[in-house]
Protein backbone atom coordinates (compact mmCIF):
# COMPACT_ATOMS: atom_id res chain seq x y z
CA UNK A 1 0.00 0.00 0.00
CA UNK A 2 2.65 2.44 1.11
CA UNK A 3 5.21 1.27 -1.41
CA UNK A 4 2.64 1.69 -4.15
CA UNK A 5 2.18 5.29 -3.07
CA UNK A 6 5.93 5.89 -3.11
CA UNK A 7 6.25 4.36 -6.55
CA UNK A 8 3.61 6.59 -8.01
CA UNK A 9 5.30 9.57 -6.41
CA UNK A 10 8.63 8.61 -7.99
CA UNK A 11 7.04 8.22 -11.38
CA UNK A 12 5.33 11.53 -11.02
CA UNK A 13 8.52 13.44 -10.25
CA UNK A 14 10.45 13.45 -13.62
CA UNK A 15 7.42 14.40 -15.65
CA UNK A 16 7.40 17.92 -14.30
CA UNK A 17 9.21 20.95 -15.68
CA UNK A 18 13.01 21.46 -16.25
CA UNK A 19 14.59 22.12 -12.89
CA UNK A 20 11.57 22.95 -11.00
CA UNK A 21 10.15 20.55 -8.49
CA UNK A 22 6.53 20.24 -8.11
CA UNK A 23 5.34 19.10 -4.72
CA UNK A 24 4.38 15.44 -4.68
CA UNK A 25 0.75 15.02 -4.24
CA UNK A 26 -0.65 12.58 -1.77
CA UNK A 27 2.57 12.17 0.26
CA UNK A 28 4.07 14.86 2.33
CA UNK A 29 7.70 14.92 3.41
CA UNK A 30 6.97 13.99 6.98
CA UNK A 31 5.14 10.83 5.91
CA UNK A 32 7.97 9.80 3.62
CA UNK A 33 10.51 10.26 6.38
CA UNK A 34 8.34 8.40 8.81
CA UNK A 35 7.99 5.52 6.37
CA UNK A 36 11.75 5.47 5.77
CA UNK A 37 12.39 5.41 9.49
CA UNK A 38 9.91 2.61 9.90
CA UNK A 39 11.53 0.65 7.10
CA UNK A 40 15.00 1.22 8.50
CA UNK A 41 13.87 0.03 11.90
CA UNK A 42 12.19 -3.01 10.41
CA UNK A 43 15.30 -3.78 8.35
CA UNK A 44 17.52 -3.43 11.41
CA UNK A 45 15.20 -5.66 13.41
CA UNK A 46 15.16 -8.28 10.68
CA UNK A 47 18.93 -8.19 10.33
CA UNK A 48 19.39 -8.52 14.08
CA UNK A 49 16.80 -11.30 14.17
CA UNK A 50 18.60 -13.13 11.40
CA UNK A 51 21.93 -12.89 13.19
CA UNK A 52 20.32 -14.15 16.39
CA UNK A 53 18.70 -17.04 14.57
CA UNK A 54 21.89 -17.95 12.76
CA UNK A 55 23.85 -17.86 16.00
CA UNK A 56 21.29 -20.01 17.78
CA UNK A 57 21.13 -22.62 15.04
CA UNK A 58 24.89 -22.57 14.69
CA UNK A 59 25.35 -23.13 18.41
CA UNK A 60 22.98 -26.10 18.48
CA UNK A 61 24.47 -27.89 15.51
CA UNK A 62 28.06 -27.12 16.41
CA UNK A 63 27.45 -28.51 19.89
CA UNK A 64 26.20 -31.73 18.36
CA UNK A 65 29.10 -31.73 15.92
CA UNK A 66 31.64 -31.18 18.70
CA UNK A 67 30.11 -34.00 20.70
CA UNK A 68 30.18 -36.21 17.63
CA UNK A 69 33.86 -35.46 17.06
CA UNK A 70 34.59 -36.14 20.73
CA UNK A 71 32.84 -39.48 20.45
CA UNK A 72 34.79 -40.34 17.35
CA UNK A 73 38.10 -39.45 18.96
CA UNK A 74 37.19 -41.46 22.04
CA UNK A 75 36.43 -44.38 19.76
CA UNK A 76 39.83 -44.03 18.11
CA UNK A 77 41.56 -44.00 21.49
CA UNK A 78 39.61 -47.08 22.49
CA UNK A 79 40.62 -48.88 19.33
CA UNK A 80 44.26 -48.01 19.97
CA UNK A 81 43.89 -49.33 23.50
CA UNK A 82 42.40 -52.54 22.19
CA UNK A 83 45.24 -52.94 19.74
CA UNK A 84 47.78 -52.40 22.51
CA UNK A 85 46.08 -55.09 24.59
CA UNK A 86 46.02 -57.44 21.63
CA UNK A 87 49.72 -56.93 21.00
CA UNK A 88 50.59 -57.57 24.61
CA UNK A 89 48.47 -60.70 24.69
CA UNK A 90 50.24 -61.97 21.57
CA UNK A 91 53.64 -61.13 23.02
CA UNK A 92 53.06 -62.55 26.48
Amino acid sequence: MLSFGLKSAAEAAPNTGEDQYEPVTGLDQATVQCVRACEAEAAAKTASDYSHVVWAYGVIWSLFAIYGVTLWRRGQAQRADLDALRRRVERG
Partner: peptide
Protein backbone atom coordinates in the same frame (compact mmCIF):
# COMPACT_ATOMS: atom_id res chain seq x y z
CA UNK B 1 5.09 -9.80 18.35
CA UNK B 2 8.55 -11.31 18.25
CA UNK B 3 9.25 -11.37 14.54
CA UNK B 4 11.79 -13.57 12.81
CA UNK B 5 13.68 -14.29 16.01
CA UNK B 6 10.83 -16.52 17.11
CA UNK B 7 12.26 -19.09 14.68
CA UNK B 8 14.70 -20.02 17.46
Amino acid sequence: KMGTVQKI
